[in-house]
Simulated assay, not measured.
Amino acid sequence: MAELSKEQQRDFEAAAFRRLVKHLRERTDVQNIDLMNLAGFCRNCLSNWYREAAEETGVALTKDESREIVYGMPYAEWQAKHQTEASDAKKAQFEASRPKDH
């Protein structure tokens, strides 16, 4: 494996994060409950992790601000445009595998 400097690692991780966010913004057909059921995290989790990282460096972000960074628009607007009602089966699957911190 190539030896990466701390700066290279940070830059590559940041680039991967930006690509993931771009991908999730483009895949509005993939609902958060689908992500949670398959991967154990969703756009909201990602925005929470972003906010927590900012707070660790002394930068205060609200939940709404960090969600807008991930969603590319206010969360309520994304919900109105793209969120669909989850089926009972998806809701049951989520409840059965729901992480303790959600």
Rank of each mutant, 00 (worst) to 15 (best):
M1I: 10
A2Q: 10
E3Q: 13
E3V: 02
L4A: 09
S5N: 09
S5W: 02
K6Y: 11
Q8C: 07
Q9K: 09
D11E: 14
D11N: 09
F12W: 12
A14L: 09
A14N: 04
A15W: 05
A15N: 04
F17Y: 01
R18Y: 03
R19N: 12
L20A: 07
L20Y: 02
V21K: 00
K22F: 13
K22G: 11
K22W: 03
H23G: 09
L24R: 01
L24Y: 02
L24I: 03
R25G: 06
R25K: 04
E26P: 02
R27G: 08
T28E: 14
T28Y: 15
D29I: 08
D29T: 11
D29P: 06
V30E: 09
V30T: 07
V30Q: 07
Q31D: 07
Q31K: 02
I33R: 08
I33G: 11
I33F: 04
L35Q: 05
L35R: 08
L35Y: 09
N37C: 12
N37T: 05
A39W: 10
A39L: 15
G40V: 01
G40R: 02
F41C: 05
C42E: 03
C42L: 02
R43V: 01
N44H: 06
N44Y: 01
S47N: 01
N48E: 09
W49Y: 05
Y50P: 00
R51F: 01
R51W: 00
E52Q: 04
E52P: 00
E55M: 11
E55R: 12
E56N: 10
E56L: 12
T57P: 01
T57A: 11
T57E: 13
G58Y: 07
G58P: 04
V59N: 03
V59R: 08
V59Y: 06
A60V: 14
L61R: 03
L61M: 13
T62I: 07
T62F: 12
K63F: 13
D64N: 13
D64A: 15
E65W: 02
E65I: 00
R67I: 01
R67P: 00
E68Q: 10
I69C: 05
I69H: 10
I69F: 13
V70T: 05
V70P: 00
Y71F: 15
Y71S: 04
Y71I: 07
G72S: 06
P74K: 10
P74D: 08
Y75W: 07
Y75R: 04
A76N: 10
E77K: 09
E77C: 04
A80D: 15
H82F: 14
T84F: 02
E85S: 12
E85G: 04
E85D: 14
D88C: 06
D88A: 15
D88S: 12
D88I: 06
D88H: 03
A89R: 06
K90C: 11
K90S: 15
K90F: 12
K90L: 14
Q93C: 11
Q93M: 12
Q93A: 14
F94T: 07
E95K: 12
R98Q: 13
K100C: 05
K100G: 09
D101L: 08
H102S: 06
H102T: 07
H102C: 14
H102N: 08
H102R: 11
